[in-house]
């Protein structure tokens, strides 16, 4: 009770001698933890799918007409649509049929093109993933080292410059920085293509993705940088860092094995959020660089009231966010042994 607060006096585990070998019993609580996380993710996905399905019901006008789209609304066609979508059943039954079909990979037919939704999405998902991952990797490569540098030079000129640049990147919308990049590197310097996804060759695709990825990365690097800086600062100020230096551990080793190791968890959590945001947020960049990705598909589908496609893209984006969060949640016990063994501190 010397320095602990009255509140910690309540947790009896802190002073009770730990039973031998909690590390060896780790398998069980870890599996339980993973199962809990997985169940939560599935539950969340169900809730999201319900909301996405409700989009259709909320769409203005007659559902059958909406689903028919540009096709001529003959009574036969309308009746066919009504029965195909179970529109005469109660809402939850409709949802059940839709969900069952979705689980079998059938997300309906595009109102606009008449092609299966899965095909429309499948054609474009590759490009969007490449774009998002590329932007993510660039943001990590810039944000983490510069965030660490800023923390190490806390309060000095380097720190202020790095942070300032981060804020500029953060506050410039992706289309603005994208246009600037196009102007500088495509129009002025003519080093890289200004728009499009290229003719399909790997190298050409890569060349076409450089500027969009940079534009995308710029919008989130500032976030990662700030996050890294805060996490590293906290570790630098921690007693255990001073103690490592005090027993003569070389500063470089302290930085890599103590400081960055300790900052890893908050950075990984933040990076997960950033990745989820990127997967769901490529719209602006795709529009700026005329890339035929999911974002473009979403914009076009909203414009043409192509509800099945909107549903599919929204569901996909939500699943991506949930999956990324699940992965981060499953990674945390690998990073932090205290979560692994259910310890309190």
């Amino acid at each position: 009770m010397t320095t602990t607060s009255p509140a910690t006096g309540q947790s009896p585990q802190t002073s009770a001698a730990p039973s031998p070998g909690p590390a060896r019993r780790a398998g069980h609580p870890l599996a339980a933890y993973a199962a809990r996380r997985l169940a939560a993710a599935v539950a969340l996905l169900l809730v999201v799918s319900l909301a996405v399905f409700a989009l259709l019901a909320l769409a203005p006008g007659d559902l059958a007409r909406t689903l028919l789209g540009t096709r001529s609304a003959t009574p036969q066609a309308l009746a066919a649509v009504r029965s195909a979508h179970h529109l005469d059943d109660p809402f939850l039954v409709q949802y059940w049929h839709w969900l069952a079909a979705a689980l079998h990979g059938d997300l309906g037919v595009s109102v606009r093109t008449g092609a299966p939704v899965t095909q429309a999405v499948g054609d474009r998902i590759g490009l969007t993933l490449q774009l998002a991952l590329g932007g993510f990797v660039l943001a990590l490569l810039a944000g983490i080292p510069f965030g660490t540098l800023a923390a190490l030079r806390r309060g000095r000129a380097t720190d202020r410059i790095v942070q300032g640049l981060g804020v500029i990147g953060l506050s410039a919308p992706a289309f603005a920085s994208g246009l600037l990049l196009v102007h500088l590197f495509a129009l002025r310097a003519d080093w890289l293509p200004a728009f499009g996804a290229g003719d399909g060759g790997t190298l050409d695709r890569l060349r076409h993705l450089v500027l969009p990825c940079v534009a995308l990365a710029l919008s989130v690097t500032g976030l990662l940088l700030k996050l890294t800086r805060a996490a590293v600062l906290r570790e630098l100020d921690a007693d255990h860092t001073a103690f490592a230096l005090a027993r003569g551990v070389p500063p470089r080793e302290v930085l890599l094995r103590h400081v960055l190791r300790g900052a890893l968890l908050p950075i990984a959590t933040g990076a997960g959020l950033v990745l989820a945001y990127l997967v769901a947020g490529t719209v602006m960049v795709e529009a700026t660089f005329a890339l035929p990705g999911l974002g473009r598909l979403l914009v076009d589908s909203v414009t043409y009231k192509d509800v099945p496609v909107v549903q599919a893209v929204a569901l996909l984006a939500a699943s991506a966010v949930i999956t990324v969060n699940l992965v981060v949640d499953l990674l945390t016990p690998l990073i932090d042994p205290r979560i692994r063994t259910g310890g309190t501190r």
Partner: peptide
Amino acid sequence: GHRGRTVSLLMQDPFTMLHPLR
């Protein structure tokens, strides 16, 4: 070699002095 071989510092709080993840 000053820190470590000549002088070593034991700090106050056993709950924060050791790295929690190592």
